[in-house]
Design a protein around this nucleic acid. Structure first.
Lengths: 336, 336
DNA sequence: GTGAAAGCGCTAACAG
DNA sequence: CTGTTAGCGCTTTCAC
């Protein structure tokens, strides 16, 4: 990259570097004429102040990191959209890091973010994440952090979540009210608070409706697609297979459809299904899919807005407040 | 963010800053004992070298920018996955910029990237982009740039594309061979080379099969969803409506399904449809959707690999070579 | 209003 | 093998 520097402009205008700097920042202590001269030459030369130099000096990067498990999932894709919308508006740049559900990667990424590369972090933890030391470390160093969707409940920081417990409670109740005698839960992980909440909602509905809770009806999914596919196939091949399924992970829904097709199990006659999914195409699946739709875009916006707010008014600590945006149950043909 | 600096480590170990710097970079001219001492203290203090300082000094950012129209589209989501995979492996960080199909934003974003914030750029232009001056400006300044998917054909830089002409040719021929008498094309834009190629393939097939080309059967879609929905509804409400549709934009497929549902037009009996789409769920739509599936993940990987290669071997210019990865036509029930 | 000077934290000659 | 020195390009006191 070729370099046009402040100094060059200063020399060409017979001014000092500081004057140029101030003029470019529209400081009120520079005469209008000078400002104009500077601005003119700057645009002519297409001058853009060096990012590292000003970053080093001002100790800011105007950048936030988004650390998420993956992007090929409509929830996170939409969340990024929301994040990017407010970041762009507020003048922040957005770094994306995918952990691919690997705890080790998450640790390594967060560790490196302590070097001044970013001013703040938006985080949705991996399904593997079992302890919080790496997150706490960041926080201790004063890094503004907002967790969203997959949060650590015991972390003293801002959180944006949806009503997971209630949603899965409603989903389960809906399946039972549609006549399901045995509802299985495809869970995302054993460690996520989000998963625990969805499990709790599921249990609560079962109990309320007088259904027994069978631990074997809860399948903890892995990050490997084929393994999950195998789990689902096994589950549905069983003679005592469930007649209702709650998929708490979007991709699982597709797998269930696939398995049902292969096993010739009619949805919704033999098996009813509701999925936590943000797919636009849910309404056009065969049969159309009953979904719990999370407010992904708005959660992204809320998370970014919260973070940017803190970053604007400097040295104000982030409030450990939790914001809950509601999901909505869209009832379609996959549940009858 | 609290600061642990190189100097502090130096002082505590009674060594010079340069020794610490070299030790941390595992320079072969530092004694093993010193290295160990340094490393120990560094890990103990959780030292991470300041990003801006080293960036300013070394004139690199180890960061690449990905400038794309949007992310809530499975093509770009998968492409990001591919990009991130190789970037992470090669030690590069990934900045995401969404243009939302706005040419002005694209200009503004590319302009700001000239400040040393990134070492290279991956670009898929907007549907609005009519000229190349802003891109050329970047290139002139020596910024390594790889275009992918939506490229400028007349730009002297590396490009990763798919066989758009052939794909839409095959798609059109397929529709005609399924009995369609009148095939419409939902185009992404009037200015993209990609769209021109898809149009050319469509025309070629029509001509080969002795079908007339009707300009009114080509609908240039806008970036506003509702407008496109309206176009599609108008198109299909017409008495002389087409009996075959090629949607060159993923979202359009959903709109077509929706319109057909509303107008009570059975797919595939009344209207057959093939869409350029990477949706995992295409096979489970009602009816299952015939798609042209682009190698999104691999295109992302290829683009990033090309860029990283150039960035590794410094000051080597990017080769203006075009790499073509083939799309594949998946025939399903929406055409048959 | 403008300039001089110092320094952000690190790296890379150049010495020894 | 290690230290000294200079400086990346910018911002910001402090002078005038």
């Amino acid at each position: 990259m070729e370099k046009v520097t402040l100094k060059q402009i200063a020399k060409r205008l017979n001014l000092s570097a500081s004057t140029i700097s101030r003029a470019l920042q529209d400081s009120h202590q520079i005469s209008p004429q000078t400002k104009q001269k500077v601005l003119e030459l700057a645009t002519e030369l297409n001058f853009v102040p060096n990012y590292h130099a000003s970053g080093l000096r001002k100790k800011v990067s105007k950048t936030i990191a988004v650390v998420i498990p993956e992007v090929a999932d409509s929830y996170f894709a939409q969340a990024i959209n929301g994040i990017e919308a407010v970041a762009q508006e507020q003048g922040f740049h957005v770094l994306i890091y995918l952990t691919h559900e690997s705890f080790l990667k998450e640790q390594a990424i967060l560790r490196e973010l302590q070097n001044g590369r970013v001013d703040g972090v938006l985080l949705a933890i991996t399904a593997e994440t079992s302890h919080n030391r790496h997150i706490r470390e960041l926080l201790n160093r004063g890094m503004p952090l907002v967790m969203f969707d997959r949060v650590c409940e015991d972390m003293e920081t801002a959180k944006i979540i949806t009503n997971d417990l209630e949603s899965s409670y409603l989903a389960t109740r809906h399946l039972i009210s549609c006549g399901c005698k045995r509802v299985a839960l495809l869970s995302a992980s054993n460690s996520l608070a989000m998963s625990a909440n969805r499990l709790a909602g599921y249990k609560k509905a079962l109990q309320e409706q007088g259904h027994p809770f069978r631990p074997t009806d809860v399948i903890a999914c892995s990050k490997a697609e084929d393994v999950n596919y195998f789990f689902i196939k096994t589950l549905l091949s069983n003679a005592h297979r469930p007649d209702g399924i709650i998929a708490t992970v979007e991709k699982q829904a597709t797998s269930v459809y696939q398995v049902c097709q292969e096993l010739n199990l009619n949805i919704p006659q033999k098996v009813k299904i509701v999925a936590f999914s943000n797919l636009q195409s849910a309404a056009f699946l065969n049969p159309s899919l009953t979904t719990v739709m999370q407010p992904a875009f708005d959660m992204g916006k809320a998370a970014a807005a919260n973070l940017c707010k803190v970053l604007k008014r400097k040295n104000l600590n982030i409030l450990p407040e939790t914001q809950v945006l509601p999901s909505v149950l869209h009832i379609r043909n996959s549940t009858g």
